[in-house]
Simulated assay, not measured.
Amino acid sequence: MIDLYTWGTPNGKKISIMLEACRLHYSVHPIDILANAQFDPNFLAISPNNKIPAIVDPDGPNGESISLFESGAILIYLADKTGEFLPMEGPERYEVFQWLMWQMGGFGPFLGQAHHFNKFAPEKVPYAIKRYTDEAKRLWKVLDSQLTGKRFVCNDLTIADFAIYPWAARYEWQGVDKEAYPAVNAWMDEMADLAFVDRGMQVP
């Protein structure tokens, strides 16, 4: 039984989608970041960067327990553990890595800033709203180009899709009209139709 420490954010939903997709047994431990639960010493022992998600797998490498934080690292670990949703070798493996890193380095952080300034900032900052909304639209255009003619981001369904989808699902917070990106829109519909994606998106 894997312990999942998470909250209802896109980064958290990446991992619950993956756990559902791989049919792994897991127990959910909600970390209420609105109540600063991420600073609890017990959680910091697992996630020293005080960010969700994190996991503890009692059946890790060599049968020993392992704890992991950072959503990308967790996705790679679970893919290697199960042999699913990540090619084991060859150029296809590195293609998945590059789109996973694209999400972690750009599509997540910049869209997160768009969320903050469009929805949560205590005062409207026009410069910041324009900067991050414009960058969100640029990143959506990159994704739309990659998905054109493809069913999934790297042709086959992989952890890259699981990483990107929960962020794309909050398009309204980003000032994005998803209908303007037809390839992404079609991909989102397909992802939403997957039962394990729907279950993962409901966690916690």
Rank of each mutant, 00 (worst) to 15 (best):
W173E: 15
H115S: 15
E89H: 14
P61W: 14
D198W: 03
D144K: 01
R170Y: 10
A169R: 07
M88A: 15
P61K: 15
K141D: 06
K119E: 14
L68W: 08
Y127S: 09
P87F: 04
A195L: 11
W140G: 05
G90F: 05
W102L: 13
E135D: 09
Q113M: 14
A114E: 05
D156G: 12
F117N: 13
S65P: 15
F107K: 01
R131Y: 05
Q98H: 10
F107H: 04
K124F: 11
G108T: 02
G149V: 02
P182E: 01
N185T: 03
L147A: 04
F117D: 13
I74Y: 00
A169H: 06
K137W: 05
K119S: 15
E84F: 10
A114S: 12
W102R: 03
K150W: 04
K124W: 09
F107V: 00
G83N: 10
E89L: 03
F162D: 01
A114H: 06
F162N: 05
G105R: 10
P91C: 12
L157R: 03
P58N: 11
D80N: 15
I74Q: 01
D134G: 11
M104W: 07
G63H: 02
Y132F: 15
G108F: 00
S145N: 14
Q103Y: 00
F110H: 04
V142C: 10
K150P: 03
W99R: 03
E70L: 06
Q113C: 13
E135A: 02
G149C: 06
W187R: 00
A163S: 12
A180T: 08
H115F: 13
E64W: 06
S145Y: 12
R93V: 08
G112M: 05
L111V: 04
V125C: 08
L100S: 10
M191C: 07
E179Y: 09
K119N: 14
E123H: 13
P122N: 14
E179M: 13
A192E: 08
A136I: 01
A169W: 03
Q103N: 06
L111H: 12
L68K: 02
P61D: 15
I66Y: 10
G106L: 08
G149T: 00
Y127C: 09
K150D: 04
L75P: 09
I66E: 11
R131E: 04
R93M: 10
S71V: 07
K178P: 00
S71Q: 08
M191A: 01
Q113D: 12
I159E: 11
V142W: 10
A180V: 05
E135H: 02
G83S: 09
E190N: 06
D144F: 01
V96L: 10
C154T: 13
G105C: 12
Y181M: 05
P58W: 11
F120Q: 14
G108R: 00
M188Q: 04
F107R: 01
A160E: 03
V197C: 02
V176H: 00
E135Y: 01
E84Y: 10
L75G: 11
P166I: 04
P126A: 05
